[in-house]
Design a protein around this nucleic acid. Structure first.
Length: 275
DNA sequence: AGAAGGCCCTGCGTGC
DNA sequence: TGCACGCAGGGCCTTC
């Protein structure tokens, strides 16, 4: 489920219930996810007030007035369930907020069947030095993603562009779905050796990346209301995909969508309109 | 340094 | 109905 637009929508949904709230309780139902949960997580969070929620790449950040920030990654199957009617299998971490004046208590469960996700605790003042963040490239929706940046990153690279766009050090936050969609929108083949892309190609690619992400966030924004529902389900915005998951179906150009494997991941593309 | 491959884990759809 | 298999939105690690 979670790529950048889904994480952004998740953070916005969480903010409705967590922004300004005091954390009353934290329960951990297993040792950890990909990694063990951080030491001192309960001490850092219980009694703390949430000061802000934000996103960096595909990470969600929950900052508190204690000077620490809880960072979550949803991996492949992670999601937050808001005010669930009953506990579910794979609810690994559960937060409960304090009821205060005009502010009801809420329960927030981090559910992750495959446990590819992660939870970390980092000093807020040194977030940018946190190793996973220090290595990240520019945000695709920020000023740092430019044709010049991509040209620099792709110089002398023989590898196909598709797996390079998944490299978080080049662009932070792109996942398999939106790379497929952005390349399709920019009419660039996923097989193109990155170093052969010309400035005109990159000048199409950058706005294509921004458009597919922006449109998905906009679609997610309209479903934020769903986060208040017990199941907390989030739409996948799949209706707007042109190539992802559409092997054998028609491309709008009249061609046919095909699937290949690159770096062990599926790439969906149209040989007719992507060169 | 870059490139390729494997691994972590559970659930779901498909085909026999 | 049961079972085996392939596949899944990600990141990290090792090896060459």
């Amino acid at each position: 489920m979670p790529e950048l637009p889904e994480v952004e929508t998740t953070v916005r949904g969480l903010a409705l219930h967590l922004q300004g709230a005091r954390i009353k309780a934290l329960s951990l139902n297993r040792e950890g996810l990909r990694r063990p949960f951080p030491q001192g997580l309960a001490q850092a969070l219980i009694g703390a007030r949430v000061t802000s929620l934000s996103r960096r790449a595909k990470y969600g950040l929950i900052a508190t007035d204690r000077g620490t920030t809880m960072i979550f990654h949803l991996g492949m199957s992670g999601r937050w369930r808001i005010d669930p009617a009953s506990p579910e299998k794979h609810d690994h971490l559960v937060l409960e907020t304090e009821a205060e004046a005009a502010r009801p208590s809420h329960t927030l469960a981090l559910n992750d069947a495959r446990r590819f996700g992660s939870v970390d605790l980092v000093a807020t003042e040194s977030l940018e030095q946190w190793p996973a963040f220090a290595a990240l490239g520019p945000e695709p929706l920020g000023d740092g993603l430019t044709p010049a940046h991509l040209a620099h990153s792709f110089t002398a690279r023989a590898a196909p562009i598709k797996p390079l766009l998944l490299d978080q050090r080049i662009v932070a936050g792109l996942g398999n779905i939106y790379v497929c969609e952005a390349l399709h929108r920019a009419h660039i083949s996923p097989l193109r050796p990155a170093g052969t892309l010309r400035r005109a190609d990159l000048a199409r690619l950058v706005p294509a990346i921004r458009a597919v992400l922006g449109e998905s966030i906009a679609a997610g924004g309209s479903t934020i209301r769903d986060y208040a529902q017990p199941n907390g389900e989030l739409g996948y915005f799949a209706a707007s995909w042109q190539v992802y998951g559409r092997e054998g179906q028609a491309c709008p150009c009249g061609g046919t969508v095909t699937r290949i494997t690159q770096g062990g991941r599926s790439s969906f593309w149209c040989e007719s309109c992507q060169k």
